[in-house]
């Protein structure tokens, strides 16, 4: 019994730095600016002032930026799932000449922090006239270094997946593509789920790339937009910034809490254990 109390106590204390920031963000976004730095911090707003939430949308095309972030993350997620499941399957299942060498070439991407290649990529997209468009934020994650981890995860998954079903299908005359599409891919659902979560979060969090590539507010993504709630001639906009931050965080948290089981167990399936 004492052991249990100690364990629960420990868990509760450890929880604070994980939960308090989110709680503080949401409640403070409803406080008037003057109360944000009240000491000790108040856990509840004294009265609800939703003015900050209105300002979020008037100061920047926030709805548009929300859509930008969402659609970019969605496109990147789907694209990465397609590219990485194809490549991962091929590397795990199909014996073709040079497979190992090619796999090694692709693995280089795993070792390259995106900051290393940001300058040449910036120039490449500049040459193609794609600066201040969403293309760099879509193409690079799907085909470039960030998707290599996804390919790796998919390959690991297919390596340990029993072959029998696919072999049976091929004996029945199904071609490679059909076998992949109708047999292997549905079986790979857990790994695909993990890849989807990883990829979505990665794209959703992207910060360096948007601030480098994008310059007009209506093309901004959320992380970039969040840091723009400061104004040369306005007062501090802490509550507006917090309101915007809450708007980006809370919906995702809700989705996560609803689907947390699939979410966490999906991640446990990355084959990284």
């Amino acid at each position: 019994m004492r052991r249990k109390t100690v364990l629960y106590g420990l868990l509760c204390v450890l929880c604070v730095p994980f939960v308090f920031p989110t709680w503080w963000m949401v409640t403070s976004s409803l406080k008037p600016v003057g109360q944000i730095f009240a000491s000790p911090p108040s856990l509840f707003p004294s009265g609800i002032d939703a003015g900050a939430y209105r300002q979020v949308f008037t100061l920047q095309p926030f709805a548009r930026q929300y859509v930008n972030s969402l659609y970019i993350a969605a496109v990147v997620t789907i694209g990465t799932m397609a590219v990485s499941s194809l490549a991962g399957y091929a590397f795990a299942r199909i014996r073709f000449r040079g497979a190992n060498a090619l796999f090694f070439v692709i693995l280089v991407g795993l070792l390259i922090p995106s900051e290393v290649t940001i300058v040449p990529l910036f120039q490449m997209f500049h040459r193609w006239g794609l600066i201040n468009t969403h293309w760099p934020l879509i193409l690079v994650p799907i085909f470039g270094a960030p998707s290599v981890l996804a390919t790796f995860i998919m390959r690991q998954f297919f390596l340990v997946l029993p072959k029998e079903l696919e072999e049976a299908a091929q004996v029945d005359g199904l071609g490679r593509l059909a076998t992949f599409w109708r047999i292997a891919l549905p079986l790979a659902r857990p790994a695909l789920g993990a890849v989807a979560i990883f990829t979505f979060l990665q794209s959703w969090n992207l910060y360096l790339e948007p601030i480098v590539y994008l310059s007009s507010p209506e093309r901004f993504t959320l992380p970039q937009a969040l840091t723009q709630y400061v104004d040369a001639y306005g007062g501090p906009m802490w509550n507006v910034q917090l309101a915007a931050a809450s708007l980006t965080a809370v919906p995702v948290i809700i989705v996560f809490v609803i689907a947390q089981r699939q979410f966490i167990e999906g991640l446990a399936h990355t084959g990284l254990k």
Partner: peptide, 28 residues
């Protein structure tokens, strides 16, 4: 045919790696 399918399957990732990883690495 299997070889070809293999190449086709890895092609998007491979071409992507060349364009967005290896070439930029050389350019750096």
């Amino acid at each position: 045919r299997d070889h070809l399918v293999g190449y086709l399957f890895v092609a998007p990732q491979l071409i992507g790696s060349v364009i967005f990883v290896l070439v930029p690495l050389g350019m750096v």
